[in-house]
C-alpha cells in the first residue's frame, strides 16, 4: 500500500514539481500515471522508491515511512519496490541470465536460489531460450523483458514501470502489457507511467492524471483523456 498526504517537492533550483499531492494506492492495484510532460509524473514515481525525498508531507510505502527513513534503510525499501526503466539500464557486459542473477546477488541471496529464481522469472517473461545472450543481441522488447525480469526477481510487492512501452512498436508493447498483467495477477501492485493512450484506453485500469504537481483526475477503469 502506498499513501501520500499533502506532499510537496521543491527542487533546489526553485521548481515546485509536486504541489500538495494526496493519493492512496492499495496492494494489488494496477495504476496508470498519465499527464503532460513536466507535470510531476517522474518526481511522483521517484518519491515512491526514495530517489527523491519530498520537501513536506507524508509518504508511506508498505511498512516504510519515507519521510523518516534512514539512509541505511533505503536498500530495504528498494527490495520492496522493483523499478523498470524506459532505457532498461541493463549491464552490457553481462548475459541475460547474469543481469537477472546480479540483482539477487547484490541483495545477498543464496546462490542456489538465485539460479532457480532467475530461470523462473526469465521463463515468465518468455526469454528462457536466450539466457546466454548479451543485451545488445536482443531486440528492444526483449531487453525490456529482461529489465522486468530483473525488477521482479527479488519479489517486490510493488513494481514501478516508467514508460515501459516508450520505445517499442505496438505489437511488442502489447506483449509487455500482457506480462505486466500477469505479474499483477500474482498480487504485485503495478504503477506504470505512460504516454501511450492506445494502451490506456484498451487495457482499462485506474488512471491517475498528474497536472501541476497534483492529482487532477483519479478514475477507476479510466481513459487516457489527453489529445495526442
Amino acid at each position: 500500500m502506498i499513501e501520500m498526504k499533502n506532499v510537496y517537492k521543491k527542487y533546489p533550483n526553485g521548481i515546485t514539481a509536486i504541489n500538495g499531492l494526496d493519493v492512496t494506492i492499495d496492494q494489488g492495484e494496477f495504476v496508470y500515471i498519465v499527464g503532460p510532460s513536466g507535470a510531476g509524473k517522474s518526481t511522483f514515481i521517484k518519491m515512491i522508491y526514495r530517489e527523491e525525498l519530498p520537501t513536506k508531507g507524508t509518504v508511506k510505502v508498505g511498512k516504510f515511512d519515507l519521510m523518516n527513513l534512514k539512509n541505511k534503510k533505503i536498500p530495504f525499501l528498494r527490495r520492496y519496490v522493483g523499478v523498470v526503466f524506459q532505457d532498461f539500464k541493463l549491464l552490457p557486459r553481462l548475459t541475460v541470465f547474469e543481469n537477472v542473477a546480479y540483482a539477487m546477488q547484490v541483495v545477498g541471496k543464496n546462490p542456489k536460489n538465485i539460479k532457480k529464481r532467475s530461470l523462473e522469472v526469465l521463463e515468465l517473461v518468455g526469454l528462457k531460450h536466450k539466457v546466454r545472450m548479451f543485451p545488445n543481441e536482443l531486440s528492444g522488447g526483449e531487453q525490456q523483458r529482461v529489465a522486468i525480469a530483473r525488477a521482479i526477481a527479488n519479489m517486490p510487492r510493488i513494481l514501478i514501470a516508467d514508460e515501459p512501452t516508450g520505445n517499442l512498436d505496438p505489437e511488442t508493447a502489447a506483449g509487455i502489457m500482457d506480462l505486466l498483467e500477469e505479474i499483477n495477477n500474482h498480487g504485485t501492485t503495478i504503477i506504470m507511467a505512460t504516454h501511450n493512450s492506445e494502451i490506456v484506453n484498451r487495457v482499462r485500469h485506474r488512471v491517475l492524471a498528474v497536472e501541476n504537481g497534483r492529482i487532477a483526475r483519479d478514475q477507476e477503469r479510466g481513459e487516457y483523456g489527453y489529445e495526442i
Partner: peptide
C-alpha cells in the same frame, strides 16, 4: 557507475557496493 546505480536501485546496501 551504471553498475553502481543499478546496484543501488535493486537494493544493494552501501557496504555491499
Amino acid at each position: 557507475r551504471t553498475e553502481i546505480e543499478i546496484m543501488k536501485l535493486v537494493g544493494a546496501t552501501n557496504w555491499f557496493i
